[in-house]
Design a protein around this nucleic acid. Structure first.
Lengths: 296, 296
DNA sequence: TCTATTGATACCTGGAGGGCATCGTGTTTA
DNA sequence: TAAACACGATGCCCTCCAGGTATCAATAGA
């Protein structure tokens, strides 16, 4: 097989139609150039350049090969460019795992920022719960997750994206809406509750019971998705603890009530990524987040 | 700049994700392969393969480069094929110069044969008189001409394509049409003649006066193209010596009469080409001609 | 803790590629 | 017509790089 240098030599000769000048252009002397062309012809198996002491011309095969040769050189020269752009994070694909809840809090703004700062980065969105995201990060199936802590900080790095309080979603016209103050634990004594699944939505489950002592007899449903909870609230099945941003969903028949202030009442959403597999486009995402944070 | 070998090495590593196995596939040992990858990364300017003692994986940039690398290899491997096909005469362009007169004798059959035996050969047709064809062959503007002898046999090789007698074209209803025998020189005593141009159509001019002693007083027009002659004959301006194949033109108002037999009365048409610039597709054309000749 | 695996490194060797000098041949010049 | 010239090919030498062997270093698993 021939080498790229031989191809370059051939193109120079084909363009100059003169070995001496071609050699000059290639910063070498004429003899090794002659030999390179001979080798190229041998490996292609065809005479490419017709030459005698006076005249250098391409054979028909040489003319055809010249076209191909240029194509080879161009592809070879362009090959590193895509790689470099991706390495700089200017292009490429960023696979983002997100929880349904993050979908109505930060995801929209985040995507808008990313599109502005790194328009050549394609985004691949996959909705999954936190535990699935962690697994996907380990298996290199996503580049970054929008998930709830805690994370194993040996394997994963993370950044706080968004913090908000839990609130109580109640059916419209519920008696608690007339309370005139934040809802306290004692107000919930006889209120039917739609609770988070203790393992599948462990983060919310833990957070809820840490803030409000639950009368387990009041729990009428156990679900794992915030959206499902809100639907059930709208259907009048009971009240539910949901992040403040769930207001943005604007579901009819649901009202959102603040809970009594507590330092523990903070729902956190983090961007998480695998320390070992840092996708350069991720840096762009983080830059976008920084701008976002400083802007707010 | 990187080499094709480095690209091949990278593709092997990317596919195996294991230096030892990749080296085996490349018929080499692992250490030089590691170095090739290092060099490639250095020349691309980007880390392409993430590796530690336990794990080999492509970086995002590496994934992008792999795609490009495969493209480079494919183009490089295909480059010689077109050249080889053309060298074998299986493809390419054949530029054919032809005289207007050959257009209605052999050209059609020749193109049909060529299309059958070498369908991938493209044909570039250019109408020109013999002298122009000779000049074009010298300047490598056509690959083969369909022309009249003589040719300088040092520079050009040729092959007889077609031989036919000269005939006399007369206006329909001309008194010679009632002769009932081939026209002889004496029959032309008072017939107005349309003659060939002595230099531009020298071949026909020489041939005509060699066969029939011309009364120069009878010459009413001097033209260089057979088609023009026939048109003038159809217009009743006089009679003209034209090759037998001119009958095929089927021009209304013209009748073709045989001339008295003579061994000199042979109009020859040759395929001519430059000995120094033999287009491989030409060999295909000649093969086609051979078949044609044996078939007739 | 010991061993197996695997990529990186050190060192050596053969071959490919480049440079210089020169040849062969065809063209131009005196 | 002979000498000078132009240009690609060839011979010879030298350098440098790719590849091989041996070994190291780091990690995972027993």
């Amino acid at each position: 097989m021939f080498t790229l240098d031989q191809v370059r030599s051939f193109v120079a000769v084909a363009e100059e139609l003169h070995f001496g000048r071609a050699a000059e252009r290639l910063n070498m002397t004429q003899p090794p150039l002659s030999r390179q062309i001979q080798k190229l012809e041998k490996s292609v198996g065809v005479k490419l350049v017709e030459r005698d002491n006076r005249r250098v011309a391409l054979t028909p095969a040489g003319t055809a090969f010249l076209e191909q040769a240029r194509k080879v050189l161009i592809t070879a020269e362009q090959a590193p460019q895509a790689a470099r752009r991706i390495a700089r994070g200017q292009a490429g694909v960023l696979r983002i795992g997100f929880t349904a809840a993050s979908g109505f809090s930060v995801l929209g703004q985040l995507l808008a920022d990313l599109a502005e700062t790194a328009p050549e980065v394609d985004v691949d969105l996959r909705e999954m719960v936190t535990s699935e995201q962690i697994a996907a990060l380990s298996k290199d199936e996503i580049d970054v997750g929008l998930a709830r802590p805690p994370f194993d900080s040996d394997l994963f790095d993370s950044r706080l994206l968004h913090a908000e309080p839990l609130e109580l979603a109640v059916p419209a016209g519920h008696r608690l809406t007339e309370l005139g103050r934040p809802v306290a634990a004692k107000d919930l004594k006889n209120v039917p509750l739609i609770m988070h699944h203790p393992s599948k939505a462990r983060y919310f489950y833990d957070l809820s019971i840490r803030n409000v002592p639950i009368h387990h007899g009041n729990v009428v449903h156990t679900v794992s998705q915030i959206l499902t909870m809100i639907s059930l609230v709208a259907a009048g099945r009971g009240a539910a603890f949901v992040p403040a941003s769930a207001r943005k969903l604007g579901i009819d028949g649901v009202e959102h009530l603040s809970l009594e202030a507590s330092p523990d009442n903070v729902v956190e959403l983090h961007a998480v990524w695998n320390r070992q597999r840092f996708n350069p486009a991720l840096r762009r995402l983080l830059t976008a987040l920084e701008r976002d944070a400083s802007g707010t």
